[in-house]
């Protein structure tokens, strides 16, 4: 991308670690959502980030360039890799997809729509669909829900780190780095966002599919 070019609306980031062949399905999902976004008139940059990736994961994502996707290898713990990915992203917004997950094809379009209406918001899918042990549906709360009292929102644990937000938001409230960051990355980041005054929003009619329900999302 030329330094003078208009930054893309979205950088779609696939974060890969030890998912192996499954990362290929996640990449496929990212490409479908990217295509849908472009059809809707958004400009999208796609980026695959290998963070301490296993050989099987590297193999699964060895030909991403043929799909027009940039590939970066980043070192560090889960939080550090995410923060470095944000720094590499050229888009005005960043959308993370873990290589163990799939987006619904409309995710980038709908999440961008919500973010445009609520600047500074962090956007989550309407439904999390976990499937390894039989389907399990989880509906994360929209912070505007009056039933979600402030004391309850502060308990954290409601929102995933696989979210959509303005790049500035990710930069202003980085993911916790070091130590046990992976263990409660989402919870700690959610609470930091709340403390910094950001709002968690839900994009209607969108779904995130993932094999495992993260322990942090309870």
């Amino acid at each position: 991308m030329s330094p003078l070019a208009t930054p893309p609306d979205i950088t779609a980031v696939l974060l890969a670690h030890d998912e192996g062949p499954q990362a290929g399905i996640a990449l496929h999902s990212l490409l479908e959502a990217t295509a849908a976004a472009r059809e809707a008139g958004l400009t999208v940059e796609s980026l695959v980030v290998l963070g301490d990736a296993s050989p099987a994961t590297r193999e699964a994502l060895s030909e991403v360039a043929t799909h027009g996707v940039r590939r970066e290898v980043l070192a560090g713990d889960a939080g550090t890799v995410r923060n470095r990915a944000v720094a590499l992203a050229g888009g005005q917004h960043v959308a993370f997809l873990d290589a163990s997950a799939l987006w619904s094809a409309n995710w980038l379009v709908e999440a961008h729509r919500v973010c445009a209406a609520h600047p500074g918001a962090v956007v989550h899918p309407e439904i999390h669909w976990f499937y390894e042990h039989g389907r399990e549906l989880y509906f994360p709360p929209d912070q505007a829900d009056p039933a979600l009292a402030p004391g309850v929102a502060a308990l954290g644990g409601w929102w995933e780190a696989q979210a959509f937000a303005a790049a500035d938001t990710f930069a202003a409230v980085p993911f916790p780095e070091g130590g046990d960051a992976r263990q409660d990355l989402a919870g700690a980041w959610s609470r930091a966002l709340l403390a910094a005054g950001h709002v968690h929003k839900v994009a209607p009619a969108t779904i995130s599919f993932r094999k495992h329900r993260p322990a942090a999302l309870r």
């Binding site: 399905i25 496929h28 999902s29 479908e32 799939l102 619904s104 094809a105 669909w129 976990f130 499937y131 390894e132 042990h133 039989g134 389907r135 399990e136 549906l137 989880y138 509906f139 994360p140 709360p141 829900d145 039933a147 979600l148 009292a149 309850v152 409601w158 779904i207 599919f209 094999k211």
Partner: peptide, 23 residues
């Protein structure tokens, strides 16, 4: 569309887990 990419999302042969709606 997601199931076309990953048929496993329907978790066949397994009973569904309870749904949570926060709050």
């Amino acid at each position: 569309r997601a199931a076309a990419l990953e048929p496993g999302i329907h978790g066949p042969l397994r009973a569904e887990q309870p749904t949570q709606v926060v709050p």
